[in-house]
Nucleic acid binder design. Structure first.
Lengths: 311, 311
DNA sequence: CTGAAAGCGCTTACAG
DNA sequence: CTGAAAGCGCTTACAG
């Protein structure tokens, strides 16, 4: 074949935007260039936390650069306890990304299918799988440091009852912070006996009636923080003069709140890129050692935090 | 082959959960059993409206029943104006679902690639594509009917500046309602000169200073409605005694608000199922006539609406 | 009705 | 280094 003809063929391919047909290519290469994503407990529920939607968006962009597509099999994390689902038996995917707080049993189950998997924003030390999470423990410790520096001595940590990696890490950081500063756990309560806004505020309001009234509240995420702020204001508390308030995640609720709420920023792009790298590397070489990445986070200080009221 | 052997083979397949390999199957059948989803302007942005996440979840479940997977190509609706993207040239998908308010130009562009496409929650009459939307026009007319029946004469409609099918339909329904009840457009203003919460409330507050103070507000969605409610309460208005309030979509903000906000419920499952049906039918037979489905909606009456204050 | 062959579009290993 | 052949796993059209 002459070089001239060769070049002309290549040109024509270029012009018409020819791309090798994926089915043929994949069949031959025994690869799919496709990664499945699962949510827990469901797609709709996971995205109540907009944070996950942003990570998903970044993930799909990053994987596109590696010619990979993301596929959403039509099933929830909750229906995975039984038989292996179609999208796994069918061999149409090269790996699975688990986005959200999957219970250990489900992770183990999926891991058992032998596909490369990676946990994003969740970690299961007892199951040998790659993961990428953020340093919630360190973040809450930093928050306590900051509040103590301002003079706060009675601080509340509150999180939804439901166990989860992030809630647990953030609580652990709070407990570490209390120890470090010799704060009394009795006047620095941890509130976790609620699972919806109303219960949350009832529990918070009760804690505020304590003899040593708490002067700062750390909520496990921005949605909870902003809901508490609205209720506290309705009950006549001034934020931040009476009560300082911290959230987590730097989502929209903390930004649009009045006053804006101090929070912890997580780099969604970074977590997505690392998650993508982990799964791509494991697809290439499945006998890599397990890697558990923990990303640093950044405190965002806004008007919802100040010195405690003079007592 | 004896029937006995045949049965044993089938049994073994069943036991091991054998599924035909998708790459081989698809190559031969010249089909992909895969549908692409695009968001506008981006995945992260689209899901700020949790409504779209719920539709996506339902879509993936419905399509799973037809053995179809949903694939997220790693690109935004915004980057579609240029060359056909990889996931189209590669021939890996049988159709495309457009979720959200895509500009006409982009829809036309994608339609030009020749793949079956369907618009969900958006309609572009000038482009010959299937679509499924909800009856926002009828809904707002019903809301006006209801408010007028309670005695309201001065009603505000407010929506973000950005044009969009839903905002426009809902506004059109408001205008129809005004005409039907001979209400004066001067005392029933349409506010659309804002694109974030602060501007929205400034515009609303200004309108409330009108001589004929409006006694009811219809916000284009629940997020806007609940934000306005918080600000109105801060400024000393009682909801609903001073001002009745309507939102749209029956999302979480209208449910957790104090008081809960009247709204319009859209059946996410239904819209997803119809969208799925439209695209599957078009994949099967691409020369079907264009179908534009409009789903009925349901008014949800909550405590945020009552009679206007005695004047 | 049953069973063997052809071929979907590609890539890789092989022969020249 | 170049070019033809084999084969990935399936399904369908064809021969017997």
């Amino acid at each position: 074949m002459s070089k001239e003809v060769r070049q002309r063929v290549l040109d024509v391919c270029q012009e018409n935007g020819y791309q090798p047909n994926s089915a043929g290519r994949n069949l031959r290469r025994r690869l799919n260039e496709t990664i499945g994503v699962l949510f827990y407990p469901s797609c709709g529920a996971a995205f109540r936390n907009i944070y996950y939607a942003e990570i998903l968006g970044e993930l799909s962009k990053t994987l596109e650069n590696a010619r990979y597509n993301l596929v959403l099999p039509g099933l929830d994390g909750t229906s995975l306890s039984e038989q292996p689902p179609r999208f796994i038996c069918q061999g149409g995917i090269d790996g699975v990304i688990l986005l959200g707080e999957f219970p250990r049993k489900v992770v183990r189950n999926i891991h058992g299918y032998g596909l490369p998997i990676v946990l994003i924003d969740n970690s299961r030390p007892k199951v040998p799988v790659d993961s990428v999470t953020t340093d919630g423990l360190g973040a809450t410790k930093q928050i306590v440091d900051h509040l103590v520096e301002l003079g706060h001595k009675n601080i509340i940590f509150m999180a939804y009852e439901q166990n989860g990696h992030n809630a647990n890490q953030r609580q652990a950081g709070f407990e570490d912070g209390l120890k470090k500063h010799n704060l009394d756990p009795l006047t620095c309560p941890i509130i976790r006996n609620f699972n919806e806004t109303r219960g949350a505020y009832a529990a918070l309001a009760a804690a505020l009636k304590n003899e040593q009234r708490p002067t700062a509240v750390i909520a496990v995420n921005d949605t909870l923080a902003s809901e508490m702020q609205v209720r506290l204001k309705e009950d006549g508390f001034n934020i931040p003069k009476d009560i300082s308030l911290f959230g987590f995640d730097d989502d929209s609720p903390s930004q649009v709140a009045v006053p804006p709420i101090s929070t912890v920023r997580v780099d969604r792009k970074e977590i997505a890129e690392i998650g993508a790298r982990l799964i791509l590397e494991r697809i290439e070489k499945n006998d890599l050692p397990v890697r558990n990445m923990v990303l640093p986070v950044e405190l965002i200080l806004r008007e919802s935090v100040t010195f405690p009221p003079a007592s």
